[in-house]
Amino acid sequence: MSLESVRAFFAAKAPDIEVIVTEASSATVALAAQAHGVEPDQIAKTICLRVGDTAMLVVAAGTARLDNRKFKDRFGGKARMLEAEEVVALTSHPVGGVCAFGLPTPLPVYCDVSLKAFDEVVPAAGATNAAVRLNPDRMAALVGAEWVDVCQAPAPAIQG
């Protein structure tokens, strides 16, 4: 089970981090933010992509959007989102619960700098109603992620 692989990951690598299972779904950024009482950008969404033959995970702030030019410049090709079946096959996690923890086989993981705006982020934890709370630098260290800048800059707040 996906949730169990995530629990085993944290038991082995970071026993101080609790996997939080909620009654409410956290399958989308909006639902996760509501379930965990945080801003949508504090949700660390994990996107499963492929460039050529290379599959990877990109973790970014909840409302951040990939910047196609930045991504292509960094990875040398256009990002292709994987279909739900491919995501489950590669990660063992369902869409809405995808995370870089407890993977059956290693995948390259990249954390977008959009996460650095927060002291604590809330990534999914292998199920559509499970998550963890941790510092983005610690998350990157736990999964061996490389920091990248591949998302669009946030839109400036409108002053009214």
Results as ranks from 00 to 15, higher is better:
residue 1 M to C: 01
residue 1 M to E: 12
residue 2 S to R: 08
residue 3 L to M: 03
residue 7 R to Y: 04
residue 7 R to A: 01
residue 7 R to C: 03
residue 10 F to M: 07
residue 12 A to Y: 05
residue 15 P to V: 05
residue 16 D to I: 00
residue 16 D to P: 00
residue 16 D to G: 06
residue 20 I to K: 12
residue 21 V to Q: 15
residue 26 S to H: 09
residue 27 A to W: 00
residue 28 T to N: 02
residue 29 V to W: 02
residue 30 A to W: 00
residue 30 A to G: 01
residue 31 L to Y: 00
residue 32 A to M: 10
residue 37 G to V: 02
residue 38 V to I: 13
residue 38 V to Q: 04
residue 39 E to A: 15
residue 39 E to L: 09
residue 39 E to H: 08
residue 40 P to L: 05
residue 41 D to W: 01
residue 42 Q to Y: 04
residue 45 K to C: 00
residue 46 T to P: 11
residue 47 I to N: 03
residue 49 L to C: 07
residue 49 L to H: 10
residue 49 L to S: 09
residue 50 R to A: 13
residue 50 R to Y: 08
residue 51 V to Q: 08
residue 51 V to H: 04
residue 52 G to H: 10
residue 52 G to N: 04
residue 56 M to N: 11
residue 56 M to S: 07
residue 59 V to H: 09
residue 59 V to E: 01
residue 62 G to I: 10
residue 65 R to S: 06
residue 65 R to D: 03
residue 65 R to Q: 13
residue 67 D to V: 12
residue 67 D to G: 07
residue 68 N to F: 11
residue 68 N to H: 13
residue 72 K to P: 10
residue 73 D to R: 08
residue 73 D to K: 14
residue 73 D to H: 11
residue 75 F to V: 05
residue 76 G to C: 09
residue 77 G to L: 02
residue 77 G to R: 04
residue 77 G to A: 02
residue 79 A to Q: 07
residue 80 R to S: 05
residue 80 R to N: 10
residue 83 E to S: 04
residue 84 A to E: 15
residue 84 A to L: 02
residue 84 A to G: 06
residue 85 E to M: 05
residue 85 E to S: 14
residue 86 E to G: 05
residue 86 E to L: 10
residue 89 A to S: 12
residue 89 A to D: 13
residue 89 A to I: 08
residue 91 T to W: 02
residue 92 S to C: 13
residue 92 S to G: 09
residue 93 H to L: 08
residue 95 V to C: 14
residue 96 G to K: 01
residue 97 G to K: 01
residue 100 A to T: 02
residue 100 A to R: 01
residue 103 L to A: 08
residue 103 L to W: 07
residue 103 L to G: 06
residue 105 T to E: 15
residue 105 T to H: 15
residue 107 L to V: 02
residue 107 L to Q: 04
residue 108 P to L: 13
residue 110 Y to K: 06
residue 111 C to L: 15
residue 112 D to A: 05
residue 115 L to D: 00
residue 117 A to Q: 13
residue 118 F to N: 03
residue 119 D to M: 10
residue 123 P to C: 00
residue 124 A to C: 10
residue 125 A to E: 07
residue 126 G to L: 03
residue 127 A to L: 11
residue 128 T to S: 03
residue 128 T to P: 00
residue 130 A to F: 12
residue 131 A to M: 13
residue 135 N to E: 15
residue 137 D to G: 02
residue 139 M to D: 07
residue 140 A to T: 14
residue 143 V to T: 14
residue 146 E to L: 06
residue 150 V to P: 08
residue 150 V to S: 05
residue 152 Q to P: 02
residue 154 P to S: 08
residue 154 P to D: 09
residue 155 A to Y: 00
residue 158 I to N: 10
residue 160 G to Q: 11
